[in-house]
């Protein structure tokens, strides 16, 4: 059903003023189920997601989506580590991606209100988005990403600022989305969440894929000492 997969990444890398931020990255993804990106701070999770989505400059190698790059980006949505709020009301934030695709105002509004209810923002619908709390902003950003029914959604630590209950709510929403055919790739520091969501795991270290394996394998029998140390909460060198 999805036209994006398989995804093939060959020697992809990005630099900044000559310094290699990530790469060379090699991986493939058939898009079956949720993929979790793990790794210590600064290991390149955010940069990898941006690279795949096409909003970070690809200096080396290639990122090949089955559908082609342009079509791929249109079929994807991205939730940033620090949510970007449009200076508009909650409902207008939700309507924005729909209005970009010329969905009529009435339909867009209806759908936006449904999503506001889904993420627990129904009471805040007419408030301006930038004054919401951090957690509320994150929920809004997730709803705004999913409202356009993307084939794939990138989530960069989406629940880092949410409490336990909100985290579970978001995970439930993600599971719904997955059930209806959306694929998810998520970077997280929450190991519980990683275990709950992951079908497979990419473990990054120093800007490279250090381990890429099915979730069961990764959590129960990690292949490398670094991954083992990371899972134990030890310092990874």
């Amino acid at each position: 059903m999805s036209t994006l997969f398989p995804l093939r990444v060959r020697g992809a890398g990005t630099r900044r003023r000559g310094k290699q931020l990530v790469g060379p990255i090699n991986m493939t993804w058939d898009g079956g189920g949720t993929r979790v990106v793990l790794g210590p701070n600064g290991s390149g999770k955010t940069t990898l997601l941006r690279l795949l989505h096409g909003i970070a400059r690809l200096h080396d190698g290639e990122v090949i989506w089955a559908s082609g790059t342009k079509a791929a980006q249109n079929a994807q949505a991205f939730v940033f580590q620090r949510p970007v709020m449009l200076r508009r009301s909650v409902v207008e934030n939700l309507m924005y991606p729909l209005r970009l695709r010329s969905v009529s105002t009435g339909q867009a509004r209806q759908k936006a209100e449904d999503w506001a209810v889904k993420v627990g923002l129904a009471d805040h619908i007419d408030r301006s988005a930038p004054v919401l709390s951090g957690g509320e902003q994150q929920k809004l950003a997730i709803a705004r990403a999913l409202i356009g029914e993307p084939e794939l959604v990138f989530l960069d630590e989406p629940t880092a600022s949410l409490d336990g209950r909100a985290t579970r709510e978001i995970e439930a929403i993600l599971n719904d989305a997955v059930a209806s055919g959306t694929r998810v790739i998520i970077a997280t520091h929450d190991m519980g969440q990683a275990r709950r969501l992951a079908k497979d795991v990419v473990f990054l270290l120093h800007g490279r894929v250090h381990e890429e394996s099915p979730a069961d394998t990764f959590f129960d029998a990690p292949q490398t000492p670094e991954a083992r140390a990371f899972l134990n909460g030890d310092i990874v060198e």
Partner: peptide, 10 residues
């Protein structure tokens, strides 16, 4: 402020 979001939304 908007750059990343709007670029991402194409």
């Amino acid at each position: 402020e908007y750059h990343d979001l709007l670029i991402s939304m194409n």
